[in-house]
Every structure is written in structure tokens, then in C-alpha cells.
């Protein structure tokens, strides 16, 4: 018997879960409050598209969330990468910055929610800062490890070929660390995405994360599920995009 290709297995598994969902909701085994059926979901989506949710349409909520994710992720990943590269090159700087990075990395973002509000207020600044702070340590650690894992012979070789320390950094160190930097970026994006709801708790009234949270409060699970699907699917789409970019840019990595 020939085994199925992997994409078919993926398709079948999705199909299986979907049909279980349809069956369970159709047969009324679970109340729509806990698990809305396909029809509820479809109606909920229509309502969200036509009338929006609490003053904003679904695309507006999504747009605001993506803008926050994009800004927080890009600034956090860039700053983290720059810091990580510097930490990888200079042991002294690493010794200086590492305790803060290591403290920040596992810290639940909700822990500093109130502080961010006190320091930066309730506007976009504190929301984006929270996402920035979520992305930064991940990107920094990835870049630092990327630099540390460069074979020392490669650096010696560059110097022997006549590259100045500055040239070694830009022409050898940075590109050598690129695969790990990009892997770190994908990791950071995942964490930023996971932090979105925490960020949108700050004086919310917009964003998919806030919508899910608010709809969940009174078990408005049709809206919550639509929100979860939207956030999940866009997350996968962005991750795929990054993966595609990664494969194009660092096609040489690991070979």
C-alpha cells in the first residue's frame, strides 16, 4: 500500500476536525455558547463585516492590530538584532546587557502592563511598546547566538584575506548570523502575536485581540471564534511569508 503524501495527510486531518465540528454542533451535543456551529460562525462573520463590532468594522479592527503587530515587531526585531549583534561581538557589552535581556525575555507582558500605562499612557505608544518589548529580547538572543556560532576560522580567514575589523563585521559577521537572525525574527513574530491580546487590553476599544477578549466576556463565542480564526489565519500567512523570504534570502543556510 502506498502511503499518502504529507499534504494529503494535512488536508485529511483538517477535514476530520471540521467534520467533527459540524457533527458535534449539528447534533446539538454542545451548546452554541461554548462551540458555535458553522452557521453561527458564518452569521457572526457577516454581522462583523456588515455592522462591525462596537464602532469599528472587522477589517478596521484587523488593520489596527496588524499595524500594531507590524510596528512593534519591526522596531523590536531591528533594535533587538542590532543589540544582539553588538552583544555577540563584544563580551563586555554582552555582560552589560544580558541580565536585562534575560530578565525581560520570560517576563509575562501583563506584568508590566500598568507600568507601561504610567510611563507611556494609554495610547498606541504603550501598546506598541509592549509588542516591541516582546520582540526585542528574542531577536537579541537570536542575533547574539548567531554571532557566537560563527566558526572562528571564518573570521580568521576574512582577516587573512585583508578585511579590516569593520569589514569583517559587515561582510562576514552580519551575513553569517543572518540565518539565526531570521529564525529569531519568526520566533519574535509569534511572540508578538501572542502578546497582542495583552497589549490591546490597555485601554482597548479596537483591534482583533480586544474584540476576542470583549466578545468572550459574555460568551459571545461566535464573534470570539471569528476573531480567533482571523488572527490565526493571518498569523499563519505572515509566518509563511517570512519563511518564504527566509528561504530566498538565506538559501545557503545549513547546506
Amino acid at each position: 500500500m502506498r502511503s499518502l503524501p504529507n499534504w494529503a495527510v494535512t488536508g485529511l486531518s483538517i477535514l476530520l476536525v471540521l467534520s467533527a465540528w459540524v457533527a458535534v454542533t449539528r447534533l446539538g451535543l454542545v451548546r452554541d455558547l461554548f462551540l458555535p456551529g458553522p452557521r453561527d460562525l458564518w452569521l457572526g462573520l457577516q454581522e462583523l463585516l456588515d455592522e462591525g463590532y462596537k464602532g469599528r468594522t472587522l477589517p478596521e479592527h484587523l488593520g489596527m492590530s496588524l499595524l500594531r503587530v507590524g510596528t512593534g515587531f519591526l522596531t523590536g526585531a531591528l533594535a533587538g538584532t542590532a543589540l544582539g549583534l553588538a552583544m555577540g561581538v563584544s563580551r563586555k557589552l554582552d555582560a552589560m546587557a544580558a541580565p536585562f535581556i534575560e530578565f525581560l525575555r520570560p517576563l509575562p507582558q501583563l506584568a508590566y502592563l500598568v507600568l507601561l500605562i504610567v510611563w507611556l499612557g494609554i495610547g498606541e505608544g504603550s501598546k506598541i511598546s509592549m509588542l516591541f518589548l516582546a520582540a526585542l529580547p528574542v531577536a537579541a538572543v537570536a542575533a547574539r547566538d548567531g554571532v557566537r556560532n560563527i566558526p572562528p576560522e571564518r573570521l580568521r580567514m576574512a582577516a587573512a584575506l585583508g578585511a579590516s575589523p569593520r569589514q569583517v563585521f559587515w561582510h562576514v559577521v552580519a551575513p553569517s548570523a543572518l540565518p539565526e537572525i531570521l529564525t529569531g525574527a519568526r520566533l519574535a513574530l509569534g511572540i508578538v502575536y501572542a502578546t497582542l491580546i495583552a497589549a490591546e487590553i490597555i485601554a482597548g476599544s479596537s483591534g482583533i485581540g480586544w474584540m476576542i477578549l470583549d466578545a468572550g466576556r459574555f460568551l459571545r463565542s461566535d464573534y470570539a471564534f471569528v476573531g480567533i480564526l482571523v488572527i490565526g489565519l493571518t498569523g499563519i500567512a505572515i509566518d509563511r511569508l517570512l519563511l518564504w523570504l527566509e528561504r530566498r534570502i538565506v538559501h545557503w543556510a545549513g547546506r
Binding site: L113, V114, I117, V118, G121, I122, G123, I201, I202, A203, G204, S205, W210, D214
Partner: peptide, 20 residues
């Protein structure tokens, strides 16, 4: 009116900042 969703602790913090 801009109605903002904030927990009581966050309200105190934002109040201190003069943001609401």
C-alpha cells in the same frame, strides 16, 4: 465620547498620567 476599556488598576495609572 471615547469609551475606553480599562481595569481599575489601569484607570488609576492612566489617571495619574492625566490621560483620561
Amino acid at each position: 465620547v471615547t469609551v475606553l476599556d480599562m481595569k481599575p488598576a489601569a484607570i488609576q495609572a492612566a489617571w495619574a498620567k492625566g490621560e483620561i
